[in-house]
Design a protein around this nucleic acid. Structure first.
Lengths: 273, 273
DNA sequence: ACACTTGTGAAAAACCTGTAAACGGCGGTA
DNA sequence: TACCGCCGTTTACAGGTTTTTCACAAGTGT
């Protein structure tokens, strides 16, 4: 059996915003971006930095021409407010001095129109790649689901501070599921994304791990059901209080102490990664 | 965390290597680099990747023309071996396809001659900007952890004034771990950040150094456990008094809950002594 | 009832980690 | 130059853990 360390293409969804009015260019770009599985948002004018923050962008492609006089100030503000954002300027003609000024300001790359969309994409990729490396916090924000707290920084899940003792695979499976709450995932998809390569026909690994996960979830969080089976399709993660909960105990109030932080219920509206 | 934008003055740390035969260009570049306080090393031909490692470079500027047929292979090797190195290609003429190929390979920027040295410098700066950002924080201030005192200014750690006699690698490993307390770090990450380049498959150096560290920690601070193993993942630094310590206060077994801050659960399987 | 799917438990195979010891380069010293 | 000690790297192996595989029970939909 072989082991593939470097993942193939589980692109953690690159989020790109484009500020440009050149509809032709933008259209082609959008097509390539879609093909790459990126999330794209375009705008014909300046987008306030706080909106950019809210979008959780990885990269921004901007033509300063559409910004008018405010261009430099805008670039400056964006670059200093969002140091983790990859900023690529794409402009008609420009002087060396302008480019140097931009780059010094915090712009990561500066390309010139007419530019081949493929190259623009590649450069955006290069810029985001570098940024991801720079801040080596790999997706470390905790995810809450039911009584669960999933902590990527520890490769572990907790209920009220108690670890579930997940193995690595179990954790990754849970993390994937929790990240696509509410969606039904086919086995092939799950396998592809957790194991990193295609599932062989007849492989039951996913089922087995689902069972292990359910066991460990049940052990620490018996009142909740997290993983639902969709016959003939796959599995769906959706935390809900179990129907048979509280057989001898009065309903909700006198539940678990819930003393410490952490055990919060989160709605499905929680944004998937 | 403050950001360092296009600083010119306080930058004695940028190390740049240039692989190019265009003496005119190189000369001008050298002048600018010197003015910026960079350390520069130039070469007329390919420099073996392990030499690049030894140089502790921040950035590499290379004209693939001087590499001949090996150019792509070379770029590939360098980029995958040194993911943290900023690589800028500077070439005569090139096609979009070539640039895209290079950028995909891991090259960070691709500029075309004739190029204004000022712009080249600015682009190299832009490429190296990210990586230094997080690194300055704990550089020289002592870190306290458990009974440990980690002093970067001496490349040494102490317990009650007694040195642990760490070698350089041991110290750097410890320093890295202590700087990311609570987080689980994968071996690849550790290797990448302590050794400075990508870990070869099957390399056990990290494990061996962890053992040496544990030995020395145990010797000077037997009552504490610092490094926890996460099976299949890596290691986590988190100082805690060892379970079998405390000769004067035997913990009553009838007490189920751990009174102290709860999220510190350690798997018995990991602490196996 | 039939043809498939999914859940389960246990055994086999693959994989990881701790540990110790050998190896090899480097710098200092006689 | 030859010798020696210090360090970092590599290798080998034992002892555990985890992952995969299997056979069968149980469940689902037509």
């Amino acid at each position: 059996m072989h082991r593939i360390r470097g993942e193939l293409a589980p692109d953690p969804t690159t989020r790109l915003a484009v500020i440009d009015t050149d509809s032709g260019f933008v259209t082609v770009l959008a097509k390539r971006a879609e093909a790459a599985g990126w999330l794209l948002r375009t705008s014909g004018g300046a987008v306030p930095p706080d909106q950019l923050v809210a979008m959780k962008l990885n990269a921004l492609l901007v033509d300063p021409a559409v910004l008018g006089d405010e261009a430099w100030r805008y670039l400056d503000r964006v670059c200093s407010l969002l140091p983790d954002l990859g900023v690529v300027v794409c402009t008609g003609r420009s002087t060396v001095a302008q480019r140097v000024r931009g780059l010094r300001l915090g712009v990561d790359d500066w390309i010139t129109k007419p530019s081949h969309p493929e190259e623009a994409i590649a450069r955006i990729e290069a810029v985001t790649r570098r940024h991801r490396r720079g801040r080596h916090e790999t997706e470390s924000s905790p995810v809450l689901a039911g009584e669960l707290e999933i902590r990527p920084d520890r490769f572990q899940a907790f209920v009220a501070g108690e670890s579930l003792d997940l193995t690595r695979r179990e954790f990754e499976l849970l993390h994937l599921l929790a990240g696509t709450q509410g969606q039904v995932l086919e086995r092939e998809t799950i396998y592809q994304r957790v194991w990193g390569y295609a599932m062989a026909h007849g492989d039951r690994s996913v089922d087995v791990f689902i069972r292990k996960l359910r066991q460990k979830l049940e052990k620490r969080s018996p009142e909740w059901e997290y993983i639902h089976t969709h016959f003939g399709v796959g599995y769906r993660f959706d935390p809900e209080p179990s129907a048979d909960a509280v057989p001898a105990t009065p309903p909700p109030p006198t539940q678990a102490p819930a003393d410490d932080r952490g055990s919060q219920v989160v709605h499905k509206s929680f944004t998937a990664a």
